[in-house]
């Protein structure tokens, strides 16, 4: 139990996937203009990363390791993620209309979110079993959601601020991210 709590706190807050590992930067900067869209993206990412962690872990432990083809890891994982995103999208559209309406737009963007592949590889590197991989995947994605929603909140508030011309757009967003990263350092005292 202690180990599980450590994984959750560690992955969601202390080693926040965006602010300290730099995974999933593109959506973090690109889809964080409105809190609403950011929450949608965050939800979709939690959904996909958790599923992808389970699948990648199962495939790695029960197919790649017994066949001694661990070197195919990267290729298999990325295909798995691409296929997973497709299936999730198709499934949601057919069966869970409400969820699809909420997350559908964001799903296609997730294949290239390096956090998904990153988590799958980290799980393998850390020798997590399937349960721990799932928990780690979920908490990493939770960390992503927290970061992107906070970011969107700040950007909504500062949208009409009078900032130097050259800093408008990307630079001010990066500066905001920098300050958030400093704030998240505070969590490192937790573990």
């Amino acid at each position: 139990m202690k180990e599980i709590i450590l994984i959750i706190v560690g992955s969601a807050l202390v080693n926040n996937v965006v602010l300290s590992q730099f995974l999933g930067i593109c959506p973090f900067l690109g889809v964080s203009k409105r809190v609403e869209t950011a929450s949608g993206m965050g939800g979709a990412v939690i959904f996909v990363i958790t599923l992808a962690s389970v699948l990648a872990s199962v495939v790695y432990n029960y197919i790649l390791v017994p066949l001694k083809v661990e070197y195919l890891q990267t290729i298999v994982f990325i295909l798995l993620i691409a296929a997973l995103v497709q299936f999730v999208e198709m499934f949601l559209k057919k069966s869970v209309q409400g969820l699809y309406r909420a997350l559908g737009v964001y799903l296609p963007l997730i294949t290239t979110n390096c956090a998904v592949l990153g988590v799958a590889i980290i799980n393998v590197q850390k020798d997590y079993n399937i349960l721990n991989s799932t928990i780690n995947g979920f908490s990493v994605a939770l960390g992503f959601a927290i970061a992107i929603i906070i970011m969107a909140g700040i950007r909504e508030k500062t949208e009409y601020n009078n900032i130097p011309e050259s800093f408008k757009g990307m630079p001010i967003t990066l500066l905001t991210a920098s300050l958030m990263a400093i704030a998240f350092f505070g969590f490192s005292g937790l573990i």
Partner: peptide, 9 residues
């Protein structure tokens, strides 16, 4: 980490 964002900004 914060320095990365800062320098790029």
């Amino acid at each position: 980490a914060p320095g990365a964002f800062l320098v790029l900004a």
